[in-house]
Amino acid sequence: MPPIIEVQGLTKEFRTFRRREGVLGALQNLFVREYLTVHAVDHVSFSIERGEMVGYIGANGAGKSTTIKVLTGILSPTGGRVISNGFVPYRERRHYTKHIGVVFGQRTQLWWDIAVIESFKLLKEIYEIPEPDFRKRLDVFSELLNLKEYLHTPVRKLSLGERMRCDLAASLLHNPPLLFLDEPTIGLDVVAKERIREFLKEINRTEGTTVLLTTHDLSDIEELSRRILIIDKGRILFDGDLEQMKNRLAQYNQVKFFLKDRTQIPRLAQIETDGIVCQRVDELTYLIRFDREHHSSAAVIRQIVNTLEVRDLLVEEEPIEEIVKRIYLKGEVA
């Protein structure tokens, strides 16, 4: 089977004008505008297979939303080629929208003033969903997302988490093979996030729905997707699975150890050889970060237990937040 999404050399440029500040600047803006060209997305290529769940991450303004908007048909690209589920999104938008579900975490897709169930019924007409299918899916979603209590509440009275669950259900009523989520867990508490992740996994498992989600919360990615795409300044920096990213990009591992008692403290200096430095966490807890290339965990541990009396010892990988932070700051993968 061909990939469900194929993006080749996707480029999107914006022309914005620079707003000058202050009274004089505002007067100047009135007559002369200075234009800047911004490359929001710059020759991006990737493809996504049917049934994948892919996390798309990047710092603010990296080009995530622009990519999503092109993939959903809202924006047309300046250059490049996109085929999604057999459609060119921006050319065949109206047909294409029947095959996708979209949730923007920042903005609801539902009608503000009317009850959730009424919004759903409008969507039923809009997407021409047959009555039995509609009933069935509504039941399933109400069950999985626990929507029953507030189906009759106007959207504006819902909490953020409740609204997001309704938005998710709404985006899937027409059973699209493709689901785009732009920051679906933004502003949600831990329980609400968990519920949404469980739901996405369930849908992906039972319906084979392909999911592309952007997020700032890396635990979303760890929980949901095996594959991760990192974009920065309009270019893809990394495309691969999470383990691969850790293997390739994690620079250090760390060992945390707990000393048996205070008598061990003076001996700490003895293990600080060959570029290994102990960091103090508290009086009896210390941390050693070491480069994966130069030291093996085994060697480091051996040195610790041979030199010191420790009560306990933990080996940890570099957290992916740290890896990603480094990528954002450096603007490249290396």
Binding site: I74, R94, I100, V102, F104, R107, Q109, I126
Partner: peptide, 9 residues
Amino acid sequence: DRVLLRPVS
């Protein structure tokens, strides 16, 4: 954007 995401004119 929402308007553009629906299969109606």
